[in-house]
Amino acid sequence: MTNDIAIQARRREIAAEHVLFKLIEYVEMRQPGLLDHIEGSLSHLGDPARDDTKDDEAVREIARRMITGARREIAS
């Protein structure tokens, strides 16, 4: 059975990613350098989990893919 709390969390995550992605695109097009700055900060990004699911590199890889997607969108 699907948990309503998990569904709401997923929907919030999707909405937050969309808004953040569009904000990054907007700023980067008007003030280049934001994506480079974010990319340079990835070594500080980590997974806050305290169990076996903790995977800092997986979190960083998601961020890298988001940056790549933003760069591609801006270039088109």
Rank of each mutant, 00 (worst) to 15 (best):
M1G: 09
M1W: 09
M1K: 07
M1P: 09
T2L: 11
N3F: 01
N3D: 12
D4V: 09
I5T: 07
A6D: 01
A6Q: 02
I7Y: 04
I7R: 06
I7N: 01
I7L: 08
Q8P: 02
Q8M: 09
Q8G: 02
Q8I: 06
A9E: 02
R10W: 00
R10V: 00
R11I: 00
R12L: 13
R12Q: 11
E13T: 04
A16F: 15
A16D: 06
E17C: 10
E17L: 08
E17P: 00
E17Y: 10
E17N: 15
H18G: 10
V19F: 10
L20C: 07
L20Y: 03
F21T: 10
F21P: 02
K22Q: 15
L23N: 15
E25S: 11
Y26A: 05
V27G: 10
M29W: 13
M29P: 13
R30P: 03
Q31N: 13
G33R: 01
L34I: 08
L34M: 09
D36T: 05
D36R: 05
D36K: 13
D36Y: 06
I38A: 15
E39H: 06
E39C: 07
E39M: 06
S41M: 09
S41G: 10
S41Y: 03
S41C: 06
S43F: 15
H44S: 09
L45G: 03
L45Y: 06
L45Q: 03
G46Y: 10
G46D: 09
P48R: 07
A49L: 04
R50K: 07
R50W: 11
D51R: 08
D51A: 05
D51Q: 10
D51G: 14
D52K: 12
K54P: 07
K54W: 04
K54T: 02
D55Y: 08
D56W: 14
D56R: 03
E57G: 14
E57L: 06
E57I: 08
A58I: 00
A58D: 05
A58Y: 00
A58C: 01
V59Y: 11
V59F: 04
R60K: 15
R60W: 03
R60F: 03
R60A: 11
R60S: 04
E61W: 02
I62E: 15
M66Y: 04
M66N: 07
I67Q: 00
T68I: 08
T68D: 02
G69M: 08
G69Y: 08
G69N: 12
G69W: 14
A70N: 13
A70S: 05
R71T: 05
R72S: 05
R72N: 05
R72C: 01
R72T: 10
R72P: 01
E73Y: 03
E73K: 13
E73P: 00
I74R: 09
I74G: 01
A75G: 02
A75K: 13
S76Q: 11
S76T: 04
